[in-house]
C-alpha cells in the first residue's frame, strides 16, 4: 500500500524516465553528442555515458541526451552541443568525461556556459 506522497514520488521519478518520449517540449534542454566514427574514435561514448550518469544523478527531468553525426570538425571531437530553449546553442569541444559534471552543474543547472571548454575558446 502506497501513501499519496509515495505515489507522487513515483510519478516524479517516472516522469524523468519517460520524458524522452515527449516531443516539442518547450522547456526541454537537449544535449547532443557527436557520435560519428570520428567522435566515437575520439572517445565520445564515455562522454555521453557520463552525461547520462550526471543527469540521472541530479534527476534532471527536462534534459534529453541524443546523438548526431559528423559536423566536419573531426579534429575537435568529441564535440557536444548543449541547447537550452531560448538561448543560442553552445558547442563544447575536446570533451572528456571529467569535464561533464562541471558542464551539467554550471551550464544546464545554473545557466552559465563553461566558456573555457567551448569552441570559441579552442579556436
Amino acid at each position: 500500500m502506497k501513501s499519496l506522497a509515495e505515489l507522487e514520488a513515483i510519478r516524479k521519478a517516472t516522469i524523468s524516465k519517460i520524458n524522452v518520449r515527449k516531443e516539442n517540449e518547450a522547456e526541454t534542454v537537449r544535449v547532443v553528442v557527436g557520435m560519428a566514427t570520428c567522435g566515437i574514435a575520439a572517445g565520445a561514448r564515455p562522454v555521453m555515458l557520463s552525461f547520462m550518469d550526471e543527469i540521472s544523478k541530479r534527476q534532471l527531468n527536462h534534459v534529453t541526451v541524443s546523438q548526431t553525426g559528423c559536423i566536419g570538425m573531426c579534429r575537435l571531437e568529441p564535440m557536444v552541443d548543449v541547447i537550452v530553449p531560448g538561448h543560442e546553442k553552445v558547442t563544447y569541444v575536446h570533451v572528456k568525461p571529467e569535464m561533464v559534471p562541471r558542464i551539467v552543474a554550471e551550464h544546464i543547472v545554473n545557466g552559465r556556459p563553461v566558456d573555457e571548454y567551448t569552441i570559441g575558446a579552442a579556436e
Binding site: 521519478a13 524523468s16 524516465k17 519517460i18 524522452v20 518520449r21 555521453m48 547520462m52 543527469i55 540521472s56 534527476q59 534529453t64 541526451v65 541524443s66 546523438q67
Partner: peptide, 10 residues
C-alpha cells in the same frame, strides 16, 4: 534510477 537516452517504442 535508470535513465535511458533513447526509447524504442514497439
Amino acid at each position: 534510477m535508470d535513465i535511458y537516452r533513447a526509447h524504442v517504442l514497439v
